[in-house]
Design a protein around this nucleic acid. Structure first.
Lengths: 199, 199, 199, 199
DNA sequence: AGTTAATCGAGACGGTACGTCGCGTCTTTGC
DNA sequence: GCAAAGACGCGACGTACCGTCTCGATTAACT
């Protein structure tokens, strides 16, 4: 059972990471994405907008995608928590409604869509996006489903991942194609896919 | 009273568009997308691979996105026709299965995913993608649904667009997140969303 | 067995060279040079302005420089003939004054300057420019000098070429540097370089 | 009463201009001009030869002409200083001989010829060439003449500019037309144009 | 209190790709 | 066979960002 932390040696001298700069970068990236879209989102522009040197960005983030991931994780944790207490069909319905609102109304929703998109273009983005966002969230969603099943609230035909994708997919797809998410969609999905068929 | 031909009907003299070059560009773009992903897809590389001058590309396509759209329209018309004859629940199920196969197996499926992605990054892409691909295809899909409804084969709760998105969304979403499309998913979607609930 | 002219056989069929097109090209080139300078003088622009196909230009001229040479030879033959009759100091002085006027006032003077310039940039231009313009004109100028010497009108210290260059050089140089040619310059050159020094 | 420094005296932080790159560009441009002529002198080739990025060139020079001007100013300052001490007919003669040698033998002479030429094709070049090279040099030459006149060494009939052009013009003109500058030319020019006519 | 080292803004650097322009050649159609 | 029209392969243009680097200046913690 050898060494613990790799470099415990020098506890660092000099100034620590500048929190002001960190937040400025995050907000700048967010704003620029909303204003000019992902295409107009350059590291140089972020740096300028944040009043920060380019090197300061590269020191802390390996790519602009990771900046967006940081904002997404922070924002979606706040705006869109996965229900952990009660687990009824109703709470799942509420979660999906929240998700739809998030994607279409919240600026942070744009970030999520942009990352889904960028993951198609770049394998590194895909990897990081799964590891840092999709994976953890899916874990929580699986829990949510499991609890509801156990409570006899729902009885989906498919496995948890396929079920979640069947619920979430249409919402994401409509957001991706610029369509609104109509009231009845979430209801129909929940009713058609989670409720046990009477037979 | 049909309008006379709007064109002055001057068939132009001089050389016509070089069909060989057109196809070379289309194939080069397709190949490069599969090999290096959208991120590695540059106009310069397409030109080099196709043995064509860059200007020849810009003469006919305003952007690399339009090249991909051309390949997609051509390919998906062949590999994935929307059923126009019979319109049963079964034919819809078959169409969705074909769609799933197309997205996950066919190289042209990568093109579709790339375009969905790029449409998030660039409004022009979005516009063109809707106008040239999503729109026309959706029109055909609406027809398919309408015929099936009329035949009493299905009775979806939602409108045609929302219904199609509910069916297609999960498939696209799983493809976007790199997941396979399990056998039962299409069945469950068709059963849960198209069949009238017995009650 | 003397060979007759190379291809006397077919007196040519098909249409002969279109004189209208030839003149249109010449004038277009001239105009464009004056309007936009040599930098803005492109074969494409000449063709468009002349209402002529690019190929028609390339069929008859190997380069745009030869077009300019054609206009120069034609124009300078008219505006600036080398005196062939009388050969006095006075006629030489008149020739130089005409040359100065040509360079600074006549549009064709711009063509001469442009060709002198282009000859620095491109060896082919230099060769053709010497062979078709400078050489023949210099031959005539040498004759002019020789006749004046023989008539006892002048007695230059230098050989004919150096003498002509000494006379013409300052005029060209001032034109090249955008300076006007002052009245006294020609007189001083003639007096200082052609008249025998009293001694 | 010296003016205080107008600059806010903030000496900038960050990296200064890379002197190595500057010299590499200057030399590359010089070499390429001599090897391939002005026609073959492209910014891309300079960059490649100098081992420098194209942007580094555009950062510091607005055009390749300015690069050449830099080399010319530097080189001609060294190889061809205008005499500032003694001012005799003899020193002027020496200056002209040096000028002839510079134009025909020194690689930097090619640069001067190329710039004279390019100034015909492009107004911006003309402007910059006069302001940065011809003007300053002419100022010094005027001084040279003025001192010689005051010393009674020469008594030209024309004003200083016309006189200098009459002396320099033939030399430049012969260089432009690819001719050598014969021994006697300079002597004859100096004798014929600077010396007071005995009468 | 002085030393040390990591931070920061600024921005120059070697690169790659962009989208455009003009070159000189080639191809089609019509007179 | 010439001409208008214009597509083609080619190569350079000048620009935008990339990610790396070097410069002072500043700022904590550790002597």
């Amino acid at each position: 059972m050898p060494a613990t932390s790799p470099q415990p040696r020098r506890p660092r001298s000099g100034p620590r990471r500048d929190e002001t700069a960190r937040l400025a970068v995050l907000h700048a990236a967010d704003d620029l994405l909303v204003e000019h879209g992902f295409g107009g989102l350059t590291v140089e522009a972020i740096a300028k907008r944040a009043g920060v040197a380019k090197q300061t960005i590269y020191r802390w983030w390996p790519s602009k995608v990771e900046i967006l991931l940081d904002t997404l994780i922070e924002d979606s944790g706040k705006s869109l928590p996965v229900p952990t207490e009660k687990a009824t069909a109703e709470s799942i319905r509420g979660y999906l409604r929240g998700f739809a609102r998030f994607l279409t109304r919240d600026p942070a929703g744009k970030v999520l869509l942009a990352l889904i998109a960028q993951a198609q273009h770049d394998p590194d983005t895909a990897k990081s996006f799964h590891k840092r966002y999709l994976g953890p969230r899916r874990t929580q969603e699986r829990d949510m489903l499991a609890r509801a099943i156990e409570a006899g609230e729902i009885s989906p035909e498919l496995g948890p991942d396929a079920t979640m994708d069947a619920l979430v997919g249409p919402i994401v797809y409509r957001a991706l194609t610029g369509a609104s998410i109509p009231r009845g969609l979430v209801d129909t999905l929940v009713d058609g896919l989670l409720r046990p068929r009477a037979n």
